[in-house]
């Protein structure tokens, strides 16, 4: 596999973003009672960020030129 530099940087950035979004203190902002679309706030936040990270990784991988 050709190691495209920009793809590696994008994926590393997704990792860093995920690490920040999934941990204290940001997670504490959503750790409270409340609902969005009938879904508990924290549950909604975690799955939303999770889906976002997957989308970003798919974007980084699939648009690289080989």
């Amino acid at each position: 596999m050709k190691r495209s530099i920009i793809t590696g940087q994008r994926l590393a950035a997704v990792f860093l973003l995920g690490f920040v979004l999934f941990n204290y203190p940001l997670i504490a902002l959503f750790n409270k009672p409340g609902e969005i679309f009938d879904i508990p706030l924290l549950y909604f936040y975690l799955f939303g960020v999770w889906a976002l990270l997957i989308a970003l990784m798919a974007w980084a991988i699939e648009r690289r030129k080989e």
């Binding site: 994926l11 590393a12 990792f15 995920g18 690490f19 999934f22 990270l53 990784m57």
Partner: peptide, 8 residues
């Protein structure tokens, strides 16, 4: 999921 970003 996070680790997958570093697999590269």
């Amino acid at each position: 999921t996070l680790m997958a970003g570093l697999w590269w």
